[in-house]
């Protein structure tokens, strides 16, 4: 309990820790919401791919001195487009297309970063550096969070139907592809925000794990979104606390907390029913032997 007090005191004292905490919470919320749609659409691989494919965009942005969000968005959408193009214009399956495109983008990103030789630390891009969040970063993250919430609220109906039953949406003339690319763009923005907290390699965990945990607890999409956002935020707070207290890297600490919450839910959630089934099994056994 003592370490909690220390953490809270430190929060009051250090601005950088406050910024870190607020940014991490915002990233947890946005990745939980967008991640819910990613897992319901069976696009976990795509989430992973886009998060890696923004690397060259980050490098180019540093080189040209433009906003990272712009560089990353261009490459994120480019990757999503190429993946779609290869999959639709050939007999190659989508997961293969994803593998080819994202690894190429990732490789290009490494080379560009080394060419840039900027103060950008590759290590920070890969693993995140939440304690170095600047005020500008925090502002950008706030804007992205606002965009994510507006996107989900205004296009809730369309996100629901294209995730659940895309053919149905097509029959009444809805342009399913446009929403797909809009979602990819938003995913890219979320990815870049999450770069700061957990880094490129672990972004996919923030997208998938809280959403998957929420999925185990509810049968309502709206509830799942709220729960995933909450779990993302909780993972961020607790992860940052562990990171501060035990001097762990912040990204892995946040991701491990999220995974821990998933593990607990996997055992006790009503939908998964691992424990309830075990108990029922035992009860049946007892009845049978009695």
């Amino acid at each position: 309990m003592n370490s909690v007090t220390t953490f809270v005191t430190a929060l009051g004292r250090y601005d950088f820790l406050q910024s870190a905490l607020i940014t991490a919470i915002m990233v947890g919320i946005m990745s939980g919401m967008i991640g819910s749609f990613i897992i319901l659409r069976g696009m976990s691989m795509m989430g992973d791919a886009i998060s890696h494919a923004v690397l060259p965009g980050v490098a180019v942005a540093y080189m040209l001195g433009i906003n990272v969000m712009i560089g990353a968005s261009i490459f994120g959408i480019l990757a999503a487009g190429l993946i779609g193009l290869v999959a639709s214009r050939s007999k190659i399956k989508t997961d293969t297309s994803i593998g080819v495109v994202f690894s190429a983008f990732y490789a290009l990103g490494f080379i560009l970063i080394s060419l840039a030789e900027s103060s950008t630390n590759l290590h920070h891009i890969l693993f995140g550096n939440i304690l170095a969040v600047s005020d500008t970063d925090m502002m950008t993250t706030t804007v992205v969070l606002g965009l994510v919430i507006l996107f989900v609220v205004f296009f809730y109906k369309e996100l629901l139907i294209t995730s659940f039953d895309p053919t149905f949406a097509q029959t009444y003339g809805f342009r399913v592809q446009i929403l797909h690319y809009a979602l990819m763009l938003v995913l890219t923005l979320v990815t870049v925000s999450a770069l700061q907290t957990v880094g490129i390699i672990l972004v996919v965990a923030m997208l998938i794990t809280p959403a998957a945990t929420a999925f185990l607890w509810t049968d309502r999409l709206a509830v799942m979104l709220g729960l995933a956002a909450t779990l993302g935020a909780i993972s961020s707070v607790v992860g940052l606390y562990f990171s501060y207290t035990f001097n762990w890297a912040s990204g892995p600490a946040i991701v491990l907390v999220a995974a821990g919450l998933f593990g607990i839910s996997f055992v006790v959630s009503p939908k998964q029913a691992l424990l309830p089934t075990l108990f029922k099994g035992k009860a049946r056994l007892r009845r049978a032997t009695a």
Binding site: K157, I161, F164, T171, Y172, G173, T218, L221
Partner: peptide, 30 residues
Amino acid sequence: KQIAYVEQRKDLDLTFPINVFDVVLTGTYG
């Protein structure tokens, strides 16, 4: 917008977090 198409349901994700009422309500979306 005047067409209703009831597809073969074999490809549907039956684990999707949606209840019966909300599925029927999507009939108004178009």
